[in-house]
């Protein structure tokens, strides 16, 4: 660290809906090739944070530096063009379109920027998720929950992102599928893409991550290397209420 510029630096980020503030002075750093996870209970502001970094929501204060560039007023498309991709909690698939069309659209911005390599990229995505290849002509809404999540991740990978942001990829999935998704996340790290992972499934997230943040009621309450957080009694406590306070 130090010499290499971080992929993403978020500092002093505040977001308010009306007068209600959802995020207070949040700071997060993602180094190249790292998996960084943000864990925390429902309503803590994790999704808000991702949406704000992506440009879907506007912030009331704070800075976002992506690939060394300080970004002020930006639209989602500009972030996609720069290499940031978000897989939202809802997956946001194009239900009435085929798997293949969904993937094609994942490369929309690359196509616009003049790259014509979507066939190779799609082959790579099919390698990661062979199940998608089998279902390439199926309409997205007919897929099972796990396949949908694979398609959502695969579609984001079609953009060959420099930073991939995943919002609750394990949400509502069976353990076997969760395991597969996390295996893919760990594998993706080898390809050099940096990952910002928001999760409820704290233990699984901390197992694959290099660094972790705990977000509670809009504030970072705890941060540190994932390996340390995983055994931190405060993390376990905030999740299970096993702290013996009663």
């Amino acid at each position: 660290m130090g010499a290499v510029e971080p992929i993403l630096v978020v500092e002093d980020l505040c977001v308010g809906y009306g007068k209600v503030e959802a995020l207070h002075h949040v700071g997060i750093v993602v180094e190249p090739g790292q998996i960084v996870t943000v864990i925390g209970p429902n309503g803590a502001g994790k999704t808000t944070m991702l949406a704000t970094v992506m440009g879907l929501l506007s912030r009331s204060r704070g800075t976002v530096r992506f690939l060394g560039e300080n970004l002020k007023d930006y639209a989602v498309e500009e972030m996609v063009a720069r290499g940031m991709n978000l897989v939202p909690e809802s997956r946001a698939l194009f239900g009435e379109m085929s798997v293949e069309e969904n993937l094609q659209l994942g490369a929309f911005m690359r196509h616009r920027l003049g790259h014509r390599d979507h066939l190779e990229t799609m082959a790579w995505v099919f390698e990661i998720f062979p199940r998608l290849k089998e279902r390439r002509d199926q309409l997205a809404f007919t897929l099972s929950g796990g396949e949908r999540q694979m398609l959502a991740v695969g579609r984001a990978l079609m953009a060959k992102p420099k930073l991939l942001m995943l919002d609750e990829p394990s949400l509502g999935l069976a353990p076997l599928i969760v395991r597969e998704i996390f295996r893919v996340i760990a594998d993706l790290k080898q390809t050099g893409v940096a990952i910002l992972l928001v999760e409820q499934n704290a233990r699984a997230a901390l197992q694959v991550a290099d660094y972790g943040y705990v977000l509670e009621t809009g504030e970072v309450s705890l941060a540190g290397p994932a390996r340390e957080l995983i055994d931190d009694p405060r993390v376990i406590e905030s999740y299970l209420g096993l702290g013996g306070k009663h």
């Binding site: 498309e77 939202p88 809802s90 946001a92 698939l93 194009f94 094609q104």
Partner: peptide, 18 residues
């Protein structure tokens, strides 16, 4: 397809850079 995608899921389309 980008237009269809926008019609189906606006946020999804924006996240693709449409």
């Amino acid at each position: 397809k980008a237009l269809r995608a926008t019609a189906i899921n606006r946020t999804g389309a924006r996240l693709m850079g449409i």
